[in-house]
C-alpha cells in the first residue's frame, strides 16, 4: 500500500485551547504511517456562527480552504466535528449548485484561486476506519486498553445531518445508533460503554449565550457515562472535549452532582493503544487529570 497522504485542516482549537489534540493527531499519524500536509493558509471554518451572520462570506472562505487541499491534490482531513460540518456543507452546496459555485469562484479568482470540487473532506475518525481499517488497528495495538470501560461521545456534527455525513465517508453511520467510535474502542482493546447520551449534544455552541442549557447538556452526558461505569470518555471533537473536560465543574453544579471523568480525544485513545509516548499525546493539557496512564 502506498503511503496515505492527506491535507490536514487543523481548525482553530488544535492550535489554541486543545494543543493536545494537535499533538496526538501528529503522533498517531506518524504511528500509522500517514503523511499530513498541514493547510497553513487555511482560515477558520466559521464554526456555524459566521454562517449565521454572513453565509456567502463563509462559503467563499471555506471554498478557499478547500481550494488549497485541491492544489495539493489531496483529500482534506478535519479533526473537529464542527469544522467537518461547515467545510463539507460548503462542498455540498457548491457541488450541487453550479450558479453558486460560479459566484464563489468569481471571488476566489481575485486571489488567483479556484474551487473545483475535486477534494473529498473527511473527519480523521472516518479516515482511520475507511482507509487504515479496524483490522489493521487491531493488529497494530501494542498496549490494549483491556482494563477500561470507555464511553464514546460522538458529537453532533459528525453524525448529523446524516445525509451530509454519509456522503463524506464509507462507514455507514446512523445518528440514532452510531457504531464507528464503539468499533474503534473495541479495536483498541477497550470495552465500549453504551449509554443514552452518547449521540447527544454537549451544548458547546450556546456556551456564552445560554450557559444553563450548555451546562446541563454537558452534565447529563458525563453523568450518563459515569452511571454506566465508564472509566473515561472519548470524543472525536475538540469542542465536545472542551465542554466535557474544562467545563465539568460548572456542569456538575448545573445538574447538582459531582462529576469526575477523564476525557480523551479519539487520537489520544488510539495513540495510547498503539504505544505512543503519553508525552507526545499531550495528556498533561487536560483540566480533569488523566491519571490512569
Amino acid at each position: 500500500m502506498s503511503k496515505l497522504r492527506y491535507a490536514l485542516f487543523t481548525g482553530c482549537t488544535a492550535k489554541q485551547s486543545t494543543p493536545e489534540q494537535y499533538m496526538s493527531t501528529m503522533a498517531v499519524a506518524k504511528k500509522l504511517g500517514i503523511e499530513l500536509v498541514e493547510l497553513v493558509e487555511a482560515s477558520c471554518c466559521g464554526a456555524s456562527h459566521l454562517q449565521d451572520y454572513d453565509e456567502f462570506l463563509s462559503l467563499v472562505l471555506n471554498a478557499r480552504n478547500i481550494a488549497y487541499a485541491e492544489k495539493h491534490g489531496l483529500t482534506m482531513v478535519t479533526i473537529c466535528n464542527t469544522c467537518q460540518l461547515n467545510i463539507s456543507m460548503t462542498k455540498h452546496k457548491l457541488d450541487k449548485d453550479p450558479e453558486l459555485k460560479a459566484k464563489v469562484n468569481e471571488k476566489l479568482a481575485e486571489v488567483g484561486l479556484e474551487y473545483k470540487g475535486t477534494s473529498q473532506i473527511i473527519h480523521f475518525l472516518y479516515a482511520i476506519i475507511d482507509d487504515i481499517g479496524l483490522d489493521k488497528i487491531r493488529e497494530m495495538v501494542v498496549r490494549p486498553l483491556s482494563q477500561f470501560n470507555i464511553a464514546p461521545f460522538y458529537g453532533c456534527h459528525n453524525i448529523r445531518p446524516s445525509e451530509l455525513q454519509n456522503e463524506t465517508h464509507k462507514t455507514a453511520e446512523s445518528p440514532y445508533n452510531p457504531t464507528s467510535l464503539d468499533d474503534l474502542i473495541i479495536a483498541c482493546g477497550g470495552e465500549s460503554v453504551d449509554y443514552e447520551e452518547k449521540n447527544k449534544c454537549c451544548g458547546f455552541h450556546v456556551e456564552l449565550q445560554a450557559p444553563k442549557t450548555a451546562a446541563v447538556l454537558t452534565g447529563n452526558a458525563i453523568a450518563g457515562a459515569m452511571d454506566n461505569n465508564a472509566d473515561m470518555m472519548v470524543t472525536p471533537c475538540p469542542l465536545c472535549h472542551l465542554k466535557l473536560d474544562t467545563q465539568a465543574e460548572h456542569a456538575g453544579e448545573a445538574i447538582g452532582r459531582e462529576l469526575d471523568m477523564p476525557v480523551l480525544h479519539m487520537q489520544q485513545m488510539v495513540g495510547l493503544a498503539l504505544g505512543c509516548d503519553p508525552k507526545e499525546l499531550g495528556l498533561e493539557h487536560h483540566v480533569v487529570d488523566v491519571n490512569f496512564v
Binding site: 440514532y176 442549557t213 450548555a214 447538556l217
Partner: peptide
C-alpha cells in the same frame, strides 16, 4: 438558544 445539534433535521 438553539444548540445546533441537528436533531430536528433528523
Amino acid at each position: 438558544d438553539c444548540v445546533k445539534c441537528f436533531e430536528c433535521a433528523e
